[in-house]
Nucleic acid binder design. Structure first.
Length: 482
RNA sequence: GGCGACGUCGCCAAGUGGUAAGGCAAGGGUCUGCAAAACCCUUAUGCGUGGGUUCAAAUCCCACCGUCGCCUCCA
């Protein structure tokens, strides 16, 4: 099966055909950096991380652009999110932006989310946004009122094609507090004239002001990916109005289709309810990482399809942690075997067909709209096979184990990002540490041989207290970090 | 009120016309000085409820019940 993707624009799963053979241009709506990122962000960006990793695994040259919103994201109250953060922390707006952008990347790095190729900031692309607004005015899709510019929704007949909303419905449900500047209540701001005391403002043909929230994505996606590009990603909660407005602006300005495939991830609840500041139930990634290891958090997000809603809870994370250990444990054991034991050579032919079958089914699952839950179930089969190999008598050959290790690196490492290259943190000390542990295992084996179980248990207990688990098998003792 | 999802074992979840993947948890067994891990076996004649279409339905249609999301800032 070729790669197929559920396209929100058509509401159908379609075969993926990039605009340019072998290349993929993808844009994903990034965070507004006015506070620490939470586990909802983690879920969504892990999803796109796996999608991008998989596209690269398939051999595509990918250009991944994810914006950083540092201006223009206005709250209902009319406040700019960044300025609100700045007032709260008594900082320059750009200090706030810098602080939380760093925090965001720190979190993403910790979660093993590979960085986008370009992370453009909205405030660094004011000229591009102004240009696009000028074009929209020239083409009759936007109008200026008192120094602000609004997009005229009635001028774009396809408005609503992504979210399935109709303008008439919107008018009926429109809020009371509609700005009377607008011609229609559903028109949205492209440029806003800044109040006198507003710090974040730029000159434009219309006023000293700042861009609307939606225009940055249109301008930056167009700049770096072209007027039409392959994939636009984001979370479903942004489908309206944000994504809808992006399409309207971009297509009205260029006269060309914006993104070919719209890929939107499902949202995340915490203990059954949506996180929100007012409820005070926001769990930051930093807090989550204090409690659970990053691979377990990633693995948890793999329990449901990327488009399905998912619920974060203590119980779910515990289950995910144990599941991850079981899925990945054999891979670590294989590495340990390859390092220490005197293994018979050969053996690759014995496992080749089974490994090829596993790889094939993993790819089939991923090709089916990135069906990660099924791909993970295939990974569990690899783990089962590996456990059997490790326990086999006579022992499996070196070549067989190398083939197994290589497949783990591909599927669990490269694509899913849940197989750390090194489990212990400090590379420089890792070898020495491993050597010391092996020495203790040797001493313990001697103690066991002379039935000095007091000593052998003491070694095991002390190591356990240090976070090293010993497991006695038929041909020796394996160790792993807790 | 409008739009849209979803309801599958104790929990999570895949499956969207051909006779119920997988994980967590639980029970039994093998192995073991003990422990842990691993391996084997067991756990949904049934997929919210009631009808209908079909040789065949968890999968399609209708009704009802329930949960959630969006419609306003949100990944």
């Amino acid at each position: 099966m070729p790669l197929t993707i559920y396209n929100f624009l058509t509401r159908h799963q379609e075969e993926f055909k990039p605009l340019v053979e072998g290349r993929v241009h993808i844009y994903v709506c990034g965070p507004t950096v006015y506070d620490h990122a939470h586990i909802g962000h983690a879920r969504n960006y892990i999803s796109f991380d796996v999608i991008v990793r998989y596209l690269r695994y398939l051999g595509y040259r990918v250009r991944y652009v994810q914006n950083i919103t540092d201006v223009g994201h206005i709250l209902d109250t009319g406040e700019d999110r960044i300025l609100k953060g700045a007032a709260r922390e008594r900082l320059e707006p750009m200090e706030v932006v810098e602080r939380y952008q760093r925090s965001y990347f720190e979190d993403m790095d910790a979660l093993g989310v590979q960085r986008p190729d370009i992370s453009p900031r909205a405030s660094a692309h004011i000229p591009e946004q102004i240009e696009m607004i000028k074009t929209l005015i020239a083409k009759g899709h936007a109008y200026e009122v008192n120094g602000s510019v609004y997009f005229d929704v009635s001028s774009f007949s396809k408005y609503g094609k992504l979210s399935g909303r109709r303008v008439e419905e919107l008018e009926e449900g429109a809020r009371v507090a509609v700005r009377e500047e607008k011609r229609h209540p559903e028109d949205f701001a492209l440029w806003k004239k800044a109040p006198e005391e507003h710090i974040l403002k730029w000159p434009s043909p219309w006023s000293w002001g700042y861009p609307g929230w939606h225009i940055e994505c249109s301008a930056m996606a167009t700049k770096y990916l072209g007027e039409t590009f392959d994939i636009h990603g984001g979370g479903v909660d942004n489908i309206f109005p944000h994504n809808e407005c992006e399409i309207a602006q971009s297509e009205a300005a260029t006269g060309k289709p914006f993104a070919k495939y719209w890929v939107l991830g499902g949202s995340l609840t915490l203990n059954g309810v949506k996180m929100s500041k007012s409820l005070g139930n926001v769990l930051t990634i930093k807090d989550a990482l204090r409690r659970w290891r990053p691979e377990a958090i990633r693995f948890f997000t793999y329990s449901a399809h990327y488009r399905s809603p998912i619920d974060f809870s203590e119980q779910a994370l515990e289950a995910a942690t144990r599941g991850w250990e079981r899925a990945i444990g054999p891979a670590l054991a294989v590495r340990e075997h390859l390092r220490s034991s005197a293994l018979p050579e050969g053996g690759a032919d014995d496992v080749a067909p089974a490994l090829a079958d596993i790889k094939h089914r993993f790819i089939e699952a991923m090709n089916d709209d990135f069906n990660i839950p099924v791909a993970v179930s295939v990974l569990f089969e690899l783990s089962k096979l590996t456990n059997t190999l490790l326990a086999a008598e006579p022992p499996a050959g070196r070549r067989a184990l190398e083939a197994v290790a290589a497949l783990y690196s591909e599927l669990a490492g490269q694509v899913l990002g849940i197989l750390p290259e090194r489990i212990s943190a400090n590379g420089a000390n890792a070898e020495r540490e491993a050597g010391l542990i092996r020495l203790l295992i040797e001493l313990r084996a001697e103690a066991r041989a002379r039935k000095d179980f007091a000593t052998s248990d003491r070694i095991r207990e002390r190591l356990k207290a240090l976070g090293v688990i010993l497991e006695d098998g038929r041909d020796g003792t394996n160790w792993k970090f807790a």
